[in-house]
Write a protein that binds this DNA or RNA. Structure first.
Length: 880
RNA sequence: GGGCGCGUAGCUCAGCGGGAGAGCACUCGGCUUACACCCGAGCGGUCGCAGGUUCGAACCCUGCCGCGCCCA
């Protein structure tokens, strides 16, 4: 680094203005190479591959959440001395990109088919160059400590090589096949979708009962998709159903079409459901397809790629499916064949989760599939036998439910943007060959038209990004990767795929080394401040960039991390971001105070620390250990909460105030500067993974160090807990708080100094804190004999009672004092009653652990003493 | 129908066998020389309901009621 370091200085700007600093700071980190691992040496490797965002996407709050969680893990590991690699990149999002580019083409009055395949793809790369990947700059904005030198894209050269290699390997192993199967067809995309790209939604449709045949031979069937009757090739009934026994084996005329179809018996028909007779459309319904297979029925396709009726030889050919649904029903009604109509009829319909949310159509179609049986088995086993941990563990059943019941995966898409299936057909179509990345097809052979599902390439992400199939140094060093961080909602989308592909591609490394990652850490979804799911339709989405503009990146990250409990959803709202911003400001000002008073971590810690020093150093030690353990266990919310509480409620509210007293004492000033310096140094390092920018500015100013990014992680902060000192600080806090309470209730103005005399401090071990009590309560300690108190209060502590006499310059508010003491008395009485009840139970005394019983006895004693003291004080109050 | 989970302060959530907590909101008082994005004090909860286990249950078990998500 050639850059000059900022001088260690007491004149930090009065305010932290994130927008002016963040971008430059991030650029310096990148240029310093902090995010690029050494890739060798004796540092242990740590690697996370980014769940690749979509090339069309921009940063939404869910990304911000996930990236914050990953970055916290990575930054901590880097500070711990790991050779940390967070590998960035994007996937090519076949369908989403198609939707965008085709829309643009439509606006120009053309289409991809008019343009042709080559030109379309060229156009698409052009789109990517101009508009794709806006999320990458937003990741910089968010502070993601990714290694940009290793950025990858699922359609770059290396990924292509991996995809083709993988396809061929699977093909040669008999794990990829082509077959005509019932698939989920999207008429809008004119492509097949995989099972997981289909959402089942309850809709209000209609159930129409249709009479086939006439007179005694009539049979009634029901359907929600009336138009499919045009493709019926049979009616089936249960073999034991007496109502239809005489019809089994006979033929019946299919209305409107005029074809004759058989009535058949099939065990799978439920005679209780509807009329007990089922129309069979083998080419357009998964169940019917199975029936058709069992009975060797013809399977005419009656719907084209765009969802229009075709090939039925009826007037309905050319109509859209929904149009035909109405027209067919009306035509049947005209013939008197509609026996019943149930409307609305609630039933489940598969909808596309890609592009327009249209109903998908089951359609018989020739597609490529991955035979997942052995792959899914291995993916399940890796978790079952503990090689891969799912965190939190409660999510395991979800994972198993998926991998253990997986259907073969349809990987072909009738699209152009993506990896074209590497299979070529001979001119007469009788032969096919699958080629590897460096092989040439025979002259005159033509390549399969379809491209692969985007997940086929994303599934290879944990190793294709590291160079596979080449045996690169990165692959050797960073595979298996350490952790996969992703949302539980997309566990199925690609975790299972990465598991299957990783175990398969890396099988030669053996069971332990073939896994794609050691841990799957699942987070929840970001919800709005009311806990509602965010959606565009509900209008409750938030833009993390706007929040970053308004409150700074650190505040957004802090908020997200603070909401992140493992595997559960995270509600966030603007109020929470404000609170985080406020925390950052608090930290900023507190550090400024420390600097202005000469805080310096390089000073030696005092050999004879004060109670306050010992207490805060002990707490720092505890907090560091807690935060370290919590982050190790992905407990972000608790780790952040611990830091928030320590910083605000302990360090700022108490230690800093006590430090002000100590700094006025020459003999303790340097020790205090050392403790302040040490405490802020450690605290800033602990906070850095969560809020990197702010902590960098403060840490550099405080320590003069190069960068907190590469500062050591404080697992062991150094000072053991001094229980005696901590106890005295607790007592001190109680004394101070009780006096404040009295002042408030007596309406003594905050700013007014009050003459006072303190008694009993020495007996309770607080003799050394006389000055602190005075300073924190704005008391003038009266030494003169003519001091005349107007009020006294007694504060009971474990070691004795502190007596405080105050001259409030006037009569005290007896009613307020009576009320205050009354509340205290009620509380003490309740405490006494509870303790007596427990101690009066012989079984409790007998069976409960000794320390628990002892604790209750102590509480009883304190309560009893309180009651006596308070009662006495109440009696001494003037009658009003 | 199967699986996972949730019902704790006005809101959002921690706590998961021995004294009910946090953030935000609210009330009162304060521009006290780090900070009004702040300081001090305070109000606020039969921990969904009913049983059971236990010396002791918000916490463990059973049932019920209500809610959410995933899969079929």
């Amino acid at each position: 680094m050639t850059e000059t370091l900022p001088p260690r200085t007491a004149d930090l700007p009065a305010q932290w203005i994130p927008g002016e600093v963040e971008a430059g700071m991030y650029q310096r980190w990148v240029e310093a190479g902090y995010f690029t691992p050494e890739g060798k040496g004796d540092k242990p490797p740590f690697c996370i591959v980014i769940p690749p965002p979509n090339v069309t996407g921009s940063l939404h709050i869910g990304h911000a959440f996930e990236h914050t969680l990953i970055d916290v893990l990575v930054r901590r590991r880097r500070m711990q001395g790991y050779d940390a690699l967070w590998l960035p990149g994007m996937d090519h999002a076949s369908i989403a990109v198609h939707a965008l580019v085709e829309k643009a083409l439509a606006e120009e009055g053309t289409s991809r088919r008019e343009l042709g395949r080559e030109a379309f793809i060229e156009r698409t790369w052009q789109w990517k160059a101009e508009h794709g990947g806006s999320i990458l700059s937003q990741m910089r904005r968010l502070g993601d400590s990714v290694d940009w030198t290793r950025e990858r894209f699922t359609m770059d050269e290396g990924a292509n090589h991996a995809v083709l290699t993988m396809f061929k390997k699977l093909y040669d192993d008999g794990l990829i096949y082509r077959a005509e199967r019932m698939v989920n067809w999207s008429p809008a995309l004119r492509s097949v979708l995989s099972d997981i790209e289909v959402n089942h939604v309850e809709v209000e449709g209609e159930l129409v009962s249709i009479r086939y045949g006439d007179g005694d031979d009539a049979i009634v069937v029901a359907t929600t998709r009336v138009e499919t009757m045009l493709g019926d090739t049979a009616v089936v009934v249960h073999p034991d159903d007496e109502r239809y026994a005489h019809l089994i084996g006979t033929q019946i005329e299919l209305p409107l079409v005029g074809r004759t179809i058989p009535i058949l018996a099939d065990e799978h028909v439920d005679p209780e459901f509807g009329t007990g007779a089922v129309k069979v459309t083998p080419a357009h319904d998964p169940n019917d397809f199975e029936i058709g297979r069992r009975h060797g029925l013809p399977m005419p396709t009656i719907m084209d790629e765009s969802g229009r009726i075709t090939g039925t030889g009826t007037e309905f050919d050319g109509m859209d499916r929904f149009e035909a649904r109405v027209a067919v029903r009306e035509a049947l009604a005209a013939q008197g064949r509609i026996v019943a109509e149930k409307r609305p009829y609630l039933h489940s319909v598969g909808h596309s989760s890609r592009g327009p949310q249209e109903p998908i159509e089951p359609r018989l179609s020739l597609q490529w599939f991955v035979k997942v049986g052995p792959l899914a088995q291995a993916a399940g086993d890796a978790v079952r036998d503990g090689r891969v941990a799912v965190h939190p563990k409660e999510m395991e059943p979800r994972y198993f439910a998926w991998v253990d019941n997986m259907h073969d995966w349809c990987i072909s898409r009738q699209l152009w943007w993506g990896h074209r299936i590497p299979v070529w057909y001979s001119p007469d179509g009788s032969e096919q060959v699958c080629l590897g990345p460096d092989e040439q097809p025979p002259a005159g052979w033509t390549q399969d038209e379809d491209v692969l599902d985007t997940w086929f390439s994303s599934g290879q992400w944990p190793f294709s990004t590291l160079g596979w199939p080449e045996q690169t140094a990165d692959l050797d060093r960073f595979y298996p990767t350490s952790v996969l961080v992703t949302g539980y909602d997309i566990l199925f989308f690609w975790v299972a795929r990465m598991m299957m592909f990783g175990l398969y591609a890396m099988a030669d490394r053996g069971p332990e080394q073939s896994i794609p990652f050691h841990t799957i850490a699942l987070h929840g979804m970001v919800r709005d401040e009311r806990g509602k799911k965010m959606s565009k339709s509900a209008g409750n989405t938030v833009d993390p960039i706007q929040w970053m503009d308004a409150y700074g990146t650190d505040a957004v990250r802090f908020t997200l991390a603070r909401s992140a409990n493992p595997g559960t959803d995270a509600p966030v709202g603007e109020a929470a971001v404000q609170a985080s911003r406020n925390f950052g400001t608090k930290l900023w000002n507190a550090t400024r105070f420390a600097l202005a008073n000469g805080a310096d971590p390089a000073l030696p810690l005092p050999s004879e620390p004060t109670d306050a020093d010992a207490w805060i150093l002990g707490r720092l030690n505890e907090v560091a250990a807690d935060v370290d353990a919590l982050l190790e266990d992905f407990q972000y919310a608790k780790a952040v909460e611990a830091l928030y509480h320590f910083t605000w409620d302990e360090l700022c509210d108490w230690y800093v105030e006590l430090a002000k007293v100590q700094l006025r004492d020459e003999s303790r000033a340097d020790g205090t500067r050392a403790v302040l310096g040490h405490t802020f140094d450690v605290l800033l390092r602990l906070l850095h993974p969560v809020s990197p920018f702010l902590t960098e500015a403060l840490w550099q100013a405080l320590t003069g160090g190069e960068s907190v990014v590469v500062a050591p992680w404080p697992a062991e902060a150094g000072s053991p807990v001094d229980a005696a000192a901590a106890g005295r600080v607790t007592d001190l806090q109680k004394v101070v708080t009780e006096i404040r309470r009295f002042r408030t209730e007596q309406r003594v103005p905050d700013a007014r100094r009050v003459a006072a005399r303190l008694g009993g401090l020495d007996g309770t071990g607080l003799g050394g804190h006389r000055g602190a009590v005075a300073a924190l309560n704005r008391l003038d300690l009266a030494e003169s004999p003519d001091f005349t108190p107007t009020a006294t209060l007694e504060i009971a502590l474990p070691g004795g009672t502190v007596h405080v006499e105050l001259d409030t310059s006037g009569a005290i508010d007896v009613a307020a004092e009576r009320a205050r003491l009354g509340r205290d008395l009620t509380a003490a009485q309740k405490e006494l009653d509870q303790a007596d009840k427990k101690l009066g139970n012989p079984k409790f005394v007998e069976k409960a652990p000794a320390e628990v019983v002892e604790g209750i006895r102590a509480r009883r004693a304190t309560a009893a003493a309180d009651i006596e003291r308070i009662t006495s004080r109440l009696g001494a109050l003037p009658q009003s």
